[in-house]
Each structure stands twice: as structure tokens, then as C-alpha cells.
């Protein structure tokens, strides 16, 4: 499985913050195995955002957790390499990894559940500093700075608990907690999915500012293709644990090559009432994760599937648009409807 040759997807620019080589995650549950993430390659540079998109069960959340070595439960095996500035995380000792944790941070979908319910806001923001053992003076300074970066000040949150803040405010507190340890990379797992639209824009802008100011690498996990398009420099589309298409945002959105990417794009609810939607009557069946189909996993839903797709699994290879696509019959025309809508 790890012999899959990776054509030219390696770092083109020097010095990626994080590089993932052949990452696979296999869960074993009551004797049955299933591969949640299958031989995934990508890299993130400083100041760059990688968007990971896919439906539920595509493995996007599992990738995020595997990167930070947060999958500890029994029956989980992780293969492949995750390199932070060239150092393989899986080769690090526990103590070394603990030190590195300050460099790699995470933001969750539901900020409130990512806070210990018995803590005050200040202590939540200081959590990483306490764990990493910062001296008191620096701790206070960093809390102040982190809160300021998300538009709060210490006096405002003093003595208050998370439930006294709204969802958007809590997500800002979660961002402050991640920033307090001054990371190089933040994995954002659906950070705006549970927020109201009017609040979502604020969090997206905030993450963009922070990324630009601090030269952070961001991995932005989301099911919302419009949000991912807005925030990402590079986009990887996941289907059943595999990357089926990866490239720059422009390549993926202007000339999507994989039929799955197109399916996703067509399904996005667009705020454009000028085009009447003609409902489709067909229905696609998503295959079971435990028993993936032979060959290309998407073929059961694919309008272009041929015999070849059942026989041989397509590997990532350059598509006409410049991105990499894992498809025997990639598309080579502009994305449907998008250009027309922009005009």
C-alpha cells in the first residue's frame, strides 16, 4: 500500500511546515477492519491554507486528528510519515512530542464542548501555557496578547465562564487558546459549521488575518465548499479516505477534473435565485465504508464509470488543469454554471 508512487506532489517550494507522506489510518472494531484514511500525501507551507473537503465519512476529521497524533484508542493503526519541519512525528519520544504540541494546534467544530466545563475563560486560554509550563509573567502577557488577537481583552473575560458567551465568541476564545502557545500550524476542524451565517464571516476573516499576520499554516477541514474556496490556497478533495483531487483552489474550482468534485460543487446551495433549479430524480448510493467497491471507490455513483474503473484503481496523476486527479476519465472543461453566474 505504501509503494504507491507519488508523482510530483512533493514540496515544490522549500520548507513546508507540515508534510504528510503516505498517511493511512486503519480502525479495527470488533474484528472488522476498515481504512478511514488511505495513503494520503500533502504538504502545508507557512502562511498557506490547505482545505480538506469531503462528505461525512470521507476521513477528513480522522486526518486532522492523525496529524496531531490524537488517535490513541485501541484498535487504531497509523502508517506513513507526518513531518513537522522535516522531523518525523512518529519517531519522537513522548517528551519531545509534548514539547512540539505547542507548535501544532487544533480548533474544533463545537467550541463549547472543547472547553472543560469547569474552567473559567482565562484558564481555558491559558491551558496550553500551563501544560507547557510557562512562567507566570509570560503566562499573563501571552493570555493578554492572545485575547487581543481575537478582539477580546482580559478585563472583559475576567472571572467569566464559556456559557456566558455566544457561539461565535466561544470560537474566538478557542482560537485565542490555540494562539496563546504561538503555533506554526493550526488544524481547524469545521470551525464555522455550527455558527450562524452572520457570525461565520467574522470567524473566517479572523482566521485569515491571523494566518497572514503570523505566517501560520492552516489545515481547514470543512464540508462547505464555498467556505473552503474562500479560505484555501490549496484544496484536497477526499472520498472514502482517499484524496481524489488535489491542487490550487483555482485549479479545483475553475476546472474540477474528478466527477466527484463536480458532484460536490453542483450540490452546493448557491445564493443565486436567478437560476431555477431543475430537480434531479436520480438517486446515488453511497457504498459501505466497511466494504469499499473494487477499483475506483466513486464508480458506483459516477456518471462516467466504465469497466476500467471497476478493474483498476485510478492513481493520482496530473490533470489538464494542472492539479492531480485520481480518475480514469477526468473532466477537462470549466466548472458548470460558475462562470455564467459570475457574469
Amino acid at each position: 500500500m505504501s509503494q504507491n508512487k507519488m508523482p510530483a506532489a512533493g514540496p515544490l517550494k522549500a520548507d513546508p511546515v507540515l508534510e504528510v507522506r503516505g498517511l493511512s489510518v486503519t480502525f479495527t472494531r470488533s474484528g472488522k477492519e476498515f481504512r478511514a484514511v488511505d495513503n494520503v500525501f500533502f504538504s502545508v507551507e507557512a502562511g498557506e491554507t490547505l482545505g480538506l473537503v469531503g462528505e461525512s465519512g470521507s476521513g477528513k476529521t480522522t486526518i486532522g486528528r492523525a496529524l496531531l497524533r490524537l488517535l490513541t484508542s485501541a484498535g487504531t493503526s497509523i502508517d506513513g510519515q507526518v513531518l513537522y519541519r522535516g522531523r518525523d512525528l512518529s519517531a519522537l519520544s513522548r517528551a519531545e512530542m509534548r514539547k512540539l504540541r505547542g507548535r501544532l494546534q487544533m480548533i474544533f467544530q463545537d467550541p463549547v464542548s472543547s472547553f472543560n466545563p469547569r474552567r473559567k475563560v482565562e484558564d481555558i486560554v491559558a491551558e496550553g501555557l500551563d501544560i507547557q509550563g510557562f512562567p507566570k509573567a509570560e503566562r499573563a502577557e501571552r493570555i493578554e496578547a492572545a485575547l487581543a488577537a481575537v478582539g477580546f481583552n482580559r478585563a472583559l473575560v475576567a472571572g467569566r465562564r464559556p456559557h456566558q458567551f455566544s457561539g461565535g465568541q466561544c470560537q474566538r476564545i478557542a482560537i485565542a487558546r490555540a494562539l496563546a502557545v504561538e503555533p506554526d500550524l493550526i488544524v481547524c476542524d469545521e470551525p464555522v459549521a455550527s455558527l450562524d451565517v452572520s457570525v461565520q464571516a467574522h470567524i473566517i476573516n479572523l482566521l485569515q488575518d491571523i494566518r497572514a499576520d503570523r505566517k501560520l499554516g492552516l489545515i481547514f477541514i470543512s464540508h462547505d465548499l464555498a467556505v473552503v474556496k474562500n479560505v484555501s490556497d490549496k484544496v484536497a478533495v477526499l472520498y472514502m479516505g482517499k484524496i481524489v483531487e488535489v491542487g490550487t483552489g483555482a485549479q479545483i474550482y475553475d476546472r474540477p477534473a474528478h466527477p466527484y468534485t463536480r458532484t460536490l460543487l453542483e450540490a452546493v446551495p448557491v445564493v443565486d435565485a436567478s437560476r431555477k433549479l431543475v430537480p434531479e430524480r436520480e438517486r446515488s448510493l453511497k457504498p459501505s465504508r466497511m466494504r469499499p467497491p473494487s477499483g475506483c471507490a466513486f464508480r458506483t455513483r459516477c456518471p462516467r464509470a466504465s469497466d476500467k474503473c471497476a478493474e483498476r484503481e485510478p492513481l493520482l496523476s496530473p490533470a489538464p488543469g494542472g492539479q492531480l486527479v485520481a480518475c480514469h476519465h477526468p473532466h477537462d472543461e470549466p466548472a458548470p454554471g460558475l462562470k455564467a453566474a459570475a457574469a
Binding site: 457570525v199 464571516a201 485569515q208 474556496k229 474562500n230 483552489g249 460558475l338 459570475a342
Partner: peptide, 19 residues
């Protein structure tokens, strides 16, 4: 305030202040 598919990446979104 909604991100649109036909906007280029990193388009600054209009925000609505408050809650």
C-alpha cells in the same frame, strides 16, 4: 456575509457586527 463560489480565494467577507 456568505462566502460565494464565484469569489476568488481570500475575498474579505462583509461581517455583521454583534450577536
Amino acid at each position: 456575509a456568505m462566502p460565494q463560489l464565484d469569489q476568488p480565494a481570500h475575498t474579505r467577507l462583509a461581517t455583521i457586527p454583534g450577536q
